[in-house]
Every structure is written in structure tokens, then in C-alpha cells.
């Protein structure tokens, strides 16, 4: 479903993403893990077609993100690092706006909004201005926006940032419940998030993929004799400079 090949992005002399290749199969939830500045966000921006790669290719559902951006954009839901919300719109107006951009209208739009509002529990703030709701609700509004139109592929950049523990658990459950129908790639530097939601982990450091495996395999491979390592130990051993 998601396929990258030799993806590289350089900003002048800084190499943000270096020769990243991976594949995500349909229905998988993949955790995209790495320290700050490892290139997670840049990779995700390339996958959405927002940034062009310096070299390499990325394909979503068989469409090259750079050659056929419209086909790709119809199939993805994207939650950037900062929820892309308009403070002066209400949550309802915002979702209607994004729904229309995603080519929904009429009853289909209304049904879609009702469904995502129920899913991420936004009912209580639906008619409030986004500037007046908490960061956690703003983040959930951003997630709701990504889910509109139930896209095949979800690209979530740190989806639980700014939420309280209760909300985090709920959002993780939502994400888990989406697996199967949706292919999800989720970036985070919160390790529990990966343990709680993902089956597979891609660890990236200094722009390079340093591990790409199922969670169990990683944990057992890096374990000491007899005992399995925690993901934390795996992460630290792989991202050491």
C-alpha cells in the first residue's frame, strides 16, 4: 500500500532523509519511530506529496506521489505534527470545509462528519470555535479531519501529542480499531504508543532506517541471553550515535 524506494531529501547541505526504503502492506499499522530530528516528519511530508523528495520514489496504492498527486491525495488522510486547524472556525464548520475539499457533499458529507465526530468524541465541542477548545480537542479535531472520507491510507504524525492520559488511551484504541480497513503509518517518539498500537516498527535515525521488523522480533533479537529486551532498550541501542 505504501512503498518507498531510496527516498532522500536534502536541505542545502543537510541530509534530512537518507535512502529510506520500506513497504507497508494493506491493513497494517506501522510505528515510525525515531529521536527528534531523525527525519520522521520529512518522510511523512514526502508521502503526502507536500514535499518532493530530492531523489527516490514513494508510491501510495500504486500511484507515485509526485507523478500523480491527485490520485494519492484522494486516498490519504494526513494529520501533520501541528493539527492544521483554523482557530476562527467552529469544529463543525472546519469539518464541513475539509469534507468539501475531500470532494464530499450533501448527505454523504453529513454522514461522514457524524461518523468521525462519534469516533473521536467531538460532540461536546462541535459548535465551539477551535481557538477556544483545549489542545487535546484540537488534536482530536485534526484526527477527525484525517479520517473524513475514510481514506485507505492514514498518515499520522504524533497523533497523541498534547492529550491527557485518558484521551491518549482512547485515541490509541481508535487507531487500533481502524486497522484492517485502513493502512496506517504513525510516527511517534513515545515508545508505549508503539507497543500499544503497532504490529510493526520502523526505527529511523539520522535519516536512515536502522530497523524494520515486527515488534516481537525486534524485542527478542536485541534481548540479552534468556530475557527479551524492552522496546526502550532496542530504541536506545539502535539510535546511539
Amino acid at each position: 500500500m505504501i512503498e518507498t524506494h531510496g527516498l532522500t531529501k536534502t536541505y542545502r547541505d543537510l541530509v534530512a532523509v537518507n535512502d529510506v526504503s520500506f513497504t507497508v502492506n494493506k491493513g497494517e499499522i506501522v510505528g515510525f519511530l525515531g529521536p527528534n530530528g531523525a527525519g520522521k516528519t520529512t518522510t511523512m511530508k514526502i508521502l503526502t506529496g507536500f514535499l518532493p523528495p530530492s531523489s527516490g520514489t514513494a508510491k501510495i496504492a500504486g500511484y507515485d506521489v509526485f507523478e500523480e498527486p491527485m490520485q494519492v491525495k484522494r486516498r490519504i488522510g494526513y494529520l501533520p505534527e501541528n493539527p492544521p486547524v483554523y482557530p476562527d472556525l467552529t469544529v463543525r464548520e472546519y469539518l464541513q470545509f475539509v469534507g468539501r475539499l475531500k470532494e464530499l457533499s450533501g448527505k454523504k458529507l453529513a454522514d461522514n462528519i457524524a461518523a468521525v465526530v462519534e469516533k473521536v468524541e467531538l460532540g461536546a465541542v462541535l459548535d465551539r470555535l477551535i481557538r477556544n477548545i483545549s489542545k487535546g480537542y484540537q488534536q482530536r479535531t485534526g484526527l477527525a479531519q484525517a479520517l473524513l472520507g475514510s481514506p485507505e491510507v492514514l498518515i499520522l504524525d504524533e497523533p497523541t501529542v498534547g492529550m491527557d492520559p485518558g484521551q491518549i488511551v482512547k485515541v490509541r484504541n481508535i487507531i487500533k480499531s481502524l486497522a484492517g480497513d485502513h493502512t496506517i503509518i504513525l510516527s511517534t517518539h513515545i515508545l508505549q504508543e508503539v507497543t500499544a498500537t503497532c504490529e510493526r516498527v520502523i526505527i529511523i535515525n539520522n535519516g536512515r532506517v536502522v530497523a524494520d521488523d515486527s515488534l516481537e522480533a525486534l524485542v527478542s533479537r536485541h534481548g540479552q541471553t534468556g530475557a527479551a529486551a524492552t522496546l526502550e532498550q532496542v530504541f536506545l541501542s539502535l539510535t546511539e550515535v
Binding site: T48, G49, F50, P84, V85, V98, L101, Q145
Partner: peptide, 14 residues
Amino acid sequence: RQKTLELLMTTPVR
């Protein structure tokens, strides 16, 4: 500034 251009550019809008 609000990073909402990212939203516009990643939905199927020309």
C-alpha cells in the same frame, strides 16, 4: 503560518 497550507496541499485540491 498556521500550517494549514499543508492541509490544503494534501487534500485533492489543485
